[in-house]
Computed example of a mutant assay.
Amino acid sequence: MTAQVETALRGPEAYALAHRVIDSMQQASVWPTPLNYELWLHYVSDPDSPLSREMQRLLAGDTPFTEATAEMLAAEFLPRGRLSEEIRDVGAVLNRELAAVAEAIDNARQTQAAYGETLTSASEKMQGAEGTTDLSAIVSTLSSATRRVQHHTSTLEKRLESSNREVLRLREHLEQVRRDAMTDALTNLANRKTFDEQLARLCEEAETDGKGLTLALVDIDHFKRFNDTWGHQTGDQVLRYVASVLGRIARDPRVAARYGGEEFAVIFPGETRGTVEAALNAIREEIASRSLRRRSTNDDLGAVTISVGFAERHVGETALSVLERADAALYVSKRSGRNCVTDAESMAQAAA
């Protein structure tokens, strides 16, 4: 899902957008299936996108909008659809390779069996052979059978060598597909699904080994203003800039992710409040220290600032609970004037 669509869904106009999507689908006589709804969500919220232009072309004709049409559009324009298509392609190639190897092995097995029968027959004939002519014929038969075995063995070796290269190539491709499935395409940070999985896993590990874990949520201040003033491409530039700073400072074992829209998340495994707060303030100060310029026109965009809320995990606390406390701290940062870092624990102590 594009940053523009995510931003629209997380803003005050989200419900109005949902109504427009349903109304548009009804006008087109299209059933509101999950896939159709996702396509129409892009169509309504981002009318200038390649997907929207293709949908406009299809809807302008007399061809009905079928499930096959929806799947075709998803495969071409939606990241998840393209990913599924890639996985299917890799699976098809791998199946063909396995079938070819199985055929080569079966041919070699049949040739070996035939060779064994030839040897048995030759042994019986040699026992009753009378003279050089009979022996010469037997030797000729054995030589021919041996050449056939050598040929099939050589063919099998070449087929296995070729398949080994193809399997290695497929393995590399699948690894790239796996990385793509875990990564946000715009920012190259971990995506929301990866973040959710990592947070759950790291919370379980923290509970087991007794080490600390701190979670931070980061929100770009006044991000809608960048989009409204300069356009969504400039908004994407701002997202990539913030992500680059987060990604550099939040290196392994820390986990930086795009949480949704203009919001990011950083997991600090084994780190406590003091260390994390210093790191978050360093991120905040570095982001604000640079004045961005619009790439297409070199216009001055001004400084970008972020608001941050973070929470250190308590013993026995779930991932969802840590997330909720960090989100509450982020809300306090935004309500307190933005461009600041709020600690959920300090916030709770102040309220006590």
Rank of each mutant, 00 (worst) to 15 (best):
E86V: 00
G131A: 09
G261S: 05
E54P: 00
A311T: 14
L17N: 13
V266E: 00
A278C: 06
A75V: 12
E97T: 00
A68V: 10
P269M: 05
S144E: 01
R254T: 06
N298I: 02
A328H: 10
R80D: 01
S143E: 08
Q26L: 09
F223Y: 14
T133Y: 12
L83I: 02
V315K: 15
T63H: 10
L17A: 11
A14P: 12
G247S: 07
E130S: 10
A352F: 11
E263W: 13
Y115S: 06
R169D: 09
Y259V: 10
P50A: 12
D62Q: 10
S162M: 01
G131M: 07
G128R: 08
V149M: 00
L170H: 05
I22M: 13
A92E: 08
V322A: 12
D134V: 13
V315F: 04
D228M: 07
A75I: 04
V149S: 00
V242C: 15
A102L: 02
E262H: 09
K158S: 05
T153P: 00
A137I: 01
T132W: 06
T187R: 05
V101C: 00
S291M: 14
V5H: 07
A265F: 09
L51M: 13
F268C: 08
L41F: 03
R192S: 10
D228S: 07
S136W: 03
S289D: 14
A129D: 03
R254I: 11
Q237V: 02
E117C: 02
E285F: 13
E345Y: 02
E161L: 09
T120D: 09
G231Q: 10
F226P: 12
F310T: 14
H151K: 06
A279H: 04
P79D: 10
A68D: 10
A113M: 02
